[in-house]
Amino acid sequence: MKREIVIPGEQIDCLKIGRGCFEENGKFYSKFFGVIDRKEDNFVNILPLNGKYIPKVGDKIVGIIIDAQFSFFSVDINSPYKASLPLSETQNRFDYNNKLNVGDIIHANIIRITDDKSIQISMKNGAFRKLVGGIVIKIMPTKVPRLIGKNGSMIENINNKTNCKTTIGQNGFVFVSGENEKLCIEIIKYIDKNAHEDGLTNKINEMLGELNEK
């Protein structure tokens, strides 16, 4: 299957439009320089090839704490807007062994976005925690779904073969820790660079295959 690339303002023939399109005089056009993602029922999304992360409520993100105030932390979430993490939304505010500080990496989700784009995140629910003993790398937020693969198949494959643990944020920050960090990062960056191409799974398997031979 060849992927169709569209430029801003290019007409798309479809019946229903999703993300990344707009309507003008009953016709549909692309907003982005991106790839067409056709779903059943003539439903179309445009996946931009480049761009900044725009926060959505419910997104699971990886962030870096950049400032500590009396009652909240400011968190860099790789977006034009800063997020704030109130002390009351941290995991356990009285657990002094696990307390947060500037420079720490956290896994959290977005719980509220106000009209003036102040973003509140939370670590209250089970899986969210402080991430230690690894590196954060930055990829294009628009390419995160490609890295995860169908039902997480791609990232699971990478994790198993390289013996790494990865935490992927919707915002494009990926936290990597484990045995073969270097190769894992190399592969993630390769996916980031070549996400628009077909047959990515095979190429990744090739790269992972080399590891097993060594």
Binding site: I7, P8, G9, G20, F22, E24, Y29, K31, F32, F33, G34, P48, L49, N50, G51, K52, T142
Partner: peptide, 9 residues
């Protein structure tokens, strides 16, 4: 367009 900014044309 290259920066991924939404545009009408």
């Amino acid at each position: 367009a290259d920066a991924g900014i939404p545009m009408r044309d």
